[in-house]
Nucleic acid binder design. Structure first.
Lengths: 345, 345
DNA sequence: GATTAGCACTCTTCGCCTGTGAGTGCTAAC
DNA sequence: GTTAGCACTCACAGGCGAAGAGTGCTAATC
């Protein structure tokens, strides 16, 4: 990628900024006027022709202005964009909407966050719910409900609670049950759920068989509790916001997007990419692997509980989106989220 | 409402049936052809003019065919429509998709049902999740987690389980805690959650204060557990299906509908109406109280656990919808649902 | 050599018009 | 009571032209 001279940078910046605001192709005249840099439109025109040749801009049709290409946006995000700053009111509004929910369950915090984020950004937002798998086992309990049913409760350090009603083998006495549970708690404590693999379970099983020989059921339940919810829920907000974007005015496009939104597993895959990277990631257009969002950009940020990344929050919009602003909002939100989740328990 | 003679009934029926299929206004010629009853189009034309005057049909514009009015649909549903019957394959496909999920949690059954229903009917479907409030209290447990936190578990007869982490007053000894819980279980057993009102709680509180005087916390948690989730979740499926309906081809209409879908509380209100009536209810156009769906019809059916109505399932579509068919599908689905929910636990 | 003014050219968008086809309402005949 | 026939209405699609925005190119200017 050849480097751009200062003037080209300025012009590219101007085109991107203007197009983000207006959604229209921006002409040389507009650039010359609005960002007066002592040049005539003709000069700008020449520069813009250069930029187009280099692949940073493109023309919808011959006699229209230019719009940034995907590459143009990428350059903007990487080199041109200043770091955005949130207004005080906005920051306060975010933290207010979240902290109202202070004492609630983790799921409620998340689903609230997704709502706040979508209403602030006016985009579609998605949050990958906390990854049960990533958090560490704390304890497991079995509550007998009646003669042949019991409630398994699985608790992780970060406060997740999973429960499940299971059939209890009636040949299992309460004392035996208690013994098994105690043993399991000892063995599993401190492992992440990911680490509780089937092979580990089998190992434990062998181990226990030597002492108690009627535990098949108890293990089945453990395996089941773990297998279940392999994949976290995805929370989705502001789906209708894309309808406000002029780039989605056609019914088929809307249809394609909304169909995507109905497929939780796809959304999960999309967000999962952001799990690995700490900090904020920007995927523009075809940089996204999922081809349904090749006309969109996705900005994701990871959030944590106690320095352990457990989920991602993302904003999805047209490639023409206000990267600067949205990144700032995401920063703010994730900060708050991290604080809340860590302090809350 | 004056009664229609046989011929008018036939014609109205023909118009409704044809329009449901094609979505186009249907002309006299079409009726004469397709439903040959030995009459010419001119005669049909006269009859249709009559029907229009009586308010059963209407004309989009002067030189178009007729479409059924809301009143026309109502008459069709009440008097003309034969009872639909599902094909074997369809019935089997529904029961297959549901029974795969046999052993899962109740929420999963429901969310699966909503998916099946929307894919079979090609409409938007919504299910009011099981009403926690309507089911009867079975037992309550408190699991101490560590020094100052505990897990409250609330179990109802129909198998709902709610849990919540609470702060435990450290001045409460395990023995005392156990005593309180036992007492509460005794008192609350067999009541529906609805019946556990604040006043009842206060009464119990007074009662207990005489014996143990440090229970404030324990009660707060009980109240909280109950207050929470005042309103059941609404499960939504096939939201994109309305995009296939020609009556929703304009972006604003889509927008309005989708915005509605994002407001769970509104959906809840809409569905709640169907809770009272056993069996299947059809609301056409403005018969719906919610004005956002004045252009739609809603067919709802109640589902039960052990003969107690606990939720509603609904199909929402344009007023031009295949009432006959959808009612048949709903019948089938609700039957299955009832069976599953009752046998499952 | 870089910049600018000027101008012809291109392409979209919008409104207008017109022809076409479907379907009606009415009248008169059966 | 029913039907045939005909004039009339209206939505819809395609074609046309004017307006407007913006470009590319060339020649003049700094």
């Amino acid at each position: 990628m050849e480097t751009l001279n200062e003037r080209k940078k300025q012009i590219l910046h101007a085109v991107v900024a203007n197009h983000i605001q207006t959604a229209d192709p921006v002409g040389s005249r507009t650039v010359a006027r609005a960002y007066r840099m002592g040049l005539s439109s003709a000069t700008i025109r020449n520069e813009m022709a250069d930029l187009e040749e280099m692949g940073y801009l493109e023309q919808p049709h011959t006699s229209a202005g230019r719009i940034p290409s995907q590459r143009g946006y990428r350059y903007y995000v990487d080199h041109l964009m200043a770091r955005g700053k949130l207004g005080d009111e906005e920051e306060r509004s975010i933290s207010r909407s979240l902290s109202l929910e202070k004492m609630r369950e983790i799921e409620q915090i998340i689903s609230n966050a997704v709502r706040v984020l979508s209403s602030v950004t006016n985009q579609t937002t998605l949050i990958m719910g906390p990854q049960f798998q990533k958090s560490t086992f704390q304890q497991m309990r079995i509550l007998p409900l009646d003669e042949n049913r019991g409630l398994v409760v699985l608790i992780t350090e970060s406060g997740f609670i999973k429960n499940k009603v299971i059939e209890l083998n009636q040949s299992l006495s309460p004392a035996e049950l208690h013994q098994v549970v105690t043993y399991l708690n000892q063995k599993l404590f401190g492992l992440t759920i990911d680490q509780v693999t089937t092979s580990l379970i089998n190992e434990l099983k062998r181990d226990l068989f030597r002492r108690l020989e009627i535990l098949e059921q108890a293990f089945i339940l453990l395996e089941e509790s773990l297998r279940e919810e392999q994949q976290a829920r995805v929370f989705l907000g502001g789906t209708t916001n894309i309808l406000n974007q002029p780039e989605f005015k056609s019914v088929e496009k809307i249809h394609r997007m909304l169909s995507l939104f109905e497929q939780e597993s796809l959304l999960f895959e999309i967000l999962e990419k952001g799990l690995s990277e700490d900090g904020i990631a920007v995927k523009i257009g075809t940089e996204n692997e999922c081809k349904d969002i090749h006309e969109c950009s996705l900005i994701t940020a990871a959030y944590k509980i106690d320095d352990r990344v457990i989920g991602t929050v993302g904003v999805l919009g047209p490639t023409r989106m206000d990267y600067r602003w949205i990144i700032a909002v995401l920063h703010c939100l994730v900060d708050q989220l991290n604080r809340m989740l860590s302090s809350d328990l």
